[in-house]
Amino acid sequence: KMTIRVKGKELARRIAKEMKDRNLKVEIHEHGDEVILEIE
């Protein structure tokens, strides 16, 4: 399990899509400006 902190929703969406393309499970937690992606 891996956690990534990202500034900006646009970048977070791009990373999430990339991870889904690799068949990984992604959970997205938004905290205002910061987005936390949990990847399994």
Rank of each mutant, 00 (worst) to 15 (best):
E38P: 01
K25S: 09
K25P: 03
E27D: 08
V26G: 01
H31D: 14
L37A: 00
K25G: 04
N23K: 09
E30R: 07
K17L: 09
V35D: 01
V35T: 08
V6S: 02
K20Q: 13
E27S: 13
E30Q: 09
G8L: 09
M2Y: 13
K9R: 14
K20Y: 09
A16H: 04
G32Y: 06
I36G: 00
I4F: 08
R13V: 10
I36C: 11
E38G: 03
A16D: 00
E34Q: 08
I4Y: 06
E30M: 12
K17Y: 04
K9G: 06
V26E: 00
D21W: 10
V26Y: 05
A12K: 01
N23F: 09
V6L: 08
E18Y: 15
M2R: 12
E30N: 06
I15Q: 00
I4N: 01
L24R: 05
K1V: 08
A12Y: 02
E40Q: 12
H31L: 13
L24N: 03
I28P: 01
R13T: 08
K25R: 12
M19W: 09
E40A: 10
E10D: 11
K25I: 10
K20W: 09
V26T: 03
L37M: 05
K1Y: 10
E38Q: 09
K9Y: 11
R22P: 01
R14W: 08
H31F: 14
M2G: 03
M2F: 13
E40S: 15
R13C: 15
K17T: 07
H31N: 13
T3K: 10
V6E: 00
E34A: 07
K17P: 00
D21H: 11
V35M: 11
T3Y: 15
R22T: 03
K9L: 15
E34F: 15
E40C: 12
V26F: 06
G32A: 06
R22W: 08
N23A: 06
E10P: 04
K25Y: 09
E40V: 12
E18R: 14
G8V: 07
I39T: 02
I28F: 08
L24C: 11
I4K: 02
K9M: 15
N23S: 07
L24G: 02
K1A: 09
K20N: 09
H29S: 08
I39V: 10
N23L: 07
R13S: 10
L37S: 01
D21A: 14
M19E: 00
E34G: 04
I28C: 12
A16S: 04
R14C: 14
G8R: 07
R13N: 11
L37N: 00
R5W: 09
G8K: 05
E18W: 15
G8W: 11
H31C: 15
N23Y: 07
V6W: 03
K7Q: 10
V26D: 00
